[in-house]
Computed example of a mutant assay.
Amino acid sequence: MAMQPAGNTVDNGHWHLDKRVPIALIAAMTIQTAGALIWAGAAMQRIDYMERELIAISGVGERTARLEEQMRYLRQSVDRIETKLDRLSDN
């Protein structure tokens, strides 16, 4: 049977916190985690804002296309009116 050195404990496979972990490391990890969560929350707010803006703006393109189509029809009407006026003035 093998002898264990004095002062060592048997590792039974369970997780445990060693008393040699410095408090500064635990504090740094806690602060880093909190910072990451705050950053993620702010990013999520920006994404939500941009989604709302995109939804609001999406109708603008459709309205612009309709207005362009109406302007094309108006231009054709004006051209016809001008042609008729030119014919009347030539007579």
Results as ranks from 00 to 15, higher is better:
Thr30Arg: 06
Ala42Met: 07
Arg72Asp: 06
Tyr73Ala: 10
Ile47Val: 15
Ser58Ala: 07
Met3Asp: 15
Asn8Lys: 14
Gln32Trp: 10
Tyr73Gln: 12
Arg75Val: 01
Gly7Pro: 02
Glu53Lys: 05
Leu25Ile: 05
Ile57Trp: 04
Lys19Gly: 00
Met44His: 10
Ser58His: 01
Gly59Phe: 06
Met29Lys: 11
Gly7Met: 02
Asp86Gly: 12
Gln32Phe: 04
Ile31Ser: 13
His16Trp: 11
Ser89Cys: 07
Arg63Trp: 02
Leu54Tyr: 00
His14Gly: 00
Leu88Trp: 08
Arg63Cys: 02
Ile26Gly: 02
Asp11Thr: 00
Tyr49Lys: 11
Thr30Pro: 03
Asn8Met: 15
Asp90Met: 05
Lys19Cys: 00
Ala27Glu: 08
Arg63Ala: 07
Arg63Lys: 10
Asp86Met: 09
Met44Ile: 08
Ala6Phe: 05
Asp11Gly: 02
Val10Ala: 10
Ser89Leu: 15
Ala43Pro: 00
Tyr73Pro: 00
Ile55Leu: 06
Thr30Asn: 08
Trp39Cys: 14
Leu85Ser: 12
Asn91Thr: 08
Pro5Cys: 14
Asp90His: 08
Gln70Glu: 15
Gly59Asp: 02
Ile81Gln: 04
Leu17Trp: 05
Met50Pro: 01
Met29Gly: 09
Ile23Met: 08
Leu67Phe: 08
Met1Lys: 11
Gly61Val: 06
Thr9Trp: 11
Asn91Glu: 15
Asn8Thr: 10
Ala65Glu: 12
Gln45His: 02
Tyr49Val: 07
Asp48Tyr: 09
Val78Pro: 01
Leu85Ile: 15
Gly7Glu: 04
Asp18Thr: 00
Glu69Lys: 15
Asp18Ala: 01
Tyr49Gln: 00
Thr64Tyr: 05
Leu74Tyr: 04
Thr83Met: 05
Ile23Cys: 03
Gly13Thr: 01
Gly7Arg: 02
Asp11Gln: 07
Trp39Ala: 14
Ile81Gly: 05
Asn12Ile: 10
Leu85Arg: 15
Ile38Glu: 07
His16Lys: 06
Met50Gly: 07
Trp15Pro: 01
Ala34Cys: 13
Ile55Lys: 06
Asn12Thr: 05
Ala36Phe: 13
Leu25Asn: 06
Met1Asn: 08
Leu88Tyr: 02
Arg87Asn: 11
Asn12Pro: 01
Ile47Glu: 15
Ile47Arg: 15
Glu51Lys: 15
Gly41Tyr: 09
Ser89Trp: 12
Glu53Met: 05
Arg46Glu: 14
Ser58Leu: 02
Ala24Pro: 01
Ile26Pro: 01
His16Pro: 01
Ala24Met: 04
Arg72Ile: 00
Val21His: 02
Ala43Leu: 12
Gln70Asn: 15
Asp90Glu: 14
Ser77His: 12
Ser89Glu: 15
Asp86Thr: 12
Asp18Trp: 01
Gly35Leu: 10
Arg80Leu: 13
Ile31Ala: 13
Ala65Asp: 03
Ile38Asn: 04
Thr83Ser: 12
Thr9Ser: 13
Asp86Ser: 14
Glu69Pro: 03
Ile38Lys: 11
Arg87Leu: 12
Leu25Gly: 13
Val21Pro: 00
Arg63Gln: 09
Ala34Leu: 15
Asn8Arg: 14
Glu69Trp: 10
Ala42Phe: 06
Ala43Asn: 09
Lys19Pro: 01
Gly41Leu: 06
Ala34Glu: 14
Ala24Tyr: 03
Gln76Gly: 08
Leu54Ile: 07
